[in-house]
Nucleic acid binder design. Sequence first.
DNA 1: AGAAACTGAATCACGATTCATTTTGGGTCG
DNA 2: CGACCCAAAATGAATCGTGATTCAGTTTCT
Lengths: 202, 202
Amino acid sequence: MSQADKSRATTDKRERILDGALKAFARKGFYNTKVSEIASEAGVADGTIYLYFKNKDDLLISLFEDRMEWVIDRLKTELDAVGDSVEERFRRAVELHFQLAIDEPDLSEFITVELRQSAKFMKEYKNPKFLDYLRLLDGLVEDGQKQGVFRADVEPRLLGRAIFGALDEVLLLLTFSRSPNRDVAEMTRQVTEIFIDGLRAR
Amino acid sequence: MSQADKSRATTDKRERILDGALKAFARKGFYNTKVSEIASEAGVADGTIYLYFKNKDDLLISLFEDRMEWVIDRLKTELDAVGDSVEERFRRAVELHFQLAIDEPDLSEFITVELRQSAKFMKEYKNPKFLDYLRLLDGLVEDGQKQGVFRADVEPRLLGRAIFGALDEVLLLLTFSRSPNRDVAEMTRQVTEIFIDGLRAR
DNA sequence: AGAAACTGAATCACGATTCATTTTGGGTCG
DNA sequence: CGACCCAAAATGAATCGTGATTCAGTTTCT
């Protein structure tokens, strides 16, 4: 086995554990998930998990960082593809946030439900990936202000936070609503319009 | 001791336990709080808690219901006092939500952090008080639509949810920000204006 | 006195973590 | 090539602390 392959195999097993943890946490939440359940979900022995992660908490944090990074990269890529119009970029950000409920239901459940809980238990640890995501959102507000499209009398940090809250709560609704996939496009339209019209410079 | 006094005393001890639980949960979260910590915070023996609550989960649920009811009553009262203008009522609702961080920091932390976690572990149990609060918010949107002040092409339920998310995320920010009480009035102004302008009928 | 409320030490199930043992897999040598 | 060796990786049964809950005994009420 070459060095590259060996490192690949290692990564794969680590990834299997993260996958298993995501499934398990989504299903029962962090505190109600047994390490042995994660292990069996991942198809490894209990002890193996401790070869890749210091402990259960570390596994949670690692899972966050890994998946948030994925979400952030996806958002950045899609925003780059969409051009310069702040309105259009904003709309796309909203749509992608909601789309997570369809594309990655487990991840969606994990993020919406466990983020705060962990924000708490990580009181000292400053969840940096979450802050990156917030920065992306308030960056949109800031850009809109610079372009003169958005009103200048609001703080981007505050609004970014409010927007994140709104998006995440709707994502939670989508994630848990048993009702057949409500129309993501229409929900995107409504939420986008409210914020864009509210933010627009007069 | 009269019947009224006895019931009062009982209520008091129950209330002491709820208070202790609130403090403890706010400090360390539900899963990291020991029943014995709640007991000592409340000044009762461990076993006494089980005379008033079936188990730790039941204590959590009871605490939710009790405190959310208080929050809802407070909001209803204040909205009644404020008159018919939807804009003014909306502004007041936002302000009261944020004000919780100042008035009741423990409760604020408890609600912002534990609500989702519990929404999860109460998957079957339909947190009715939380739904009442949502209903109050989408009721504002609906009223605005009926009065022709707000646009009719959005679903109140969706917007109520988005608004709750925005408010709660900002409340979280206020609750955890060590920075000296940021200006609640100014934050209220900004968030209120965005939503009202976004919702306004054209 | 009798009931109700309360107490807190003891129980007991649970589950994260450890570690002695086994398996794997590539490198070396005859 | 096959036998052998070693280190790294993996295993999973046993350990061990923890903490929710119980309940026999005590205190407080009426």
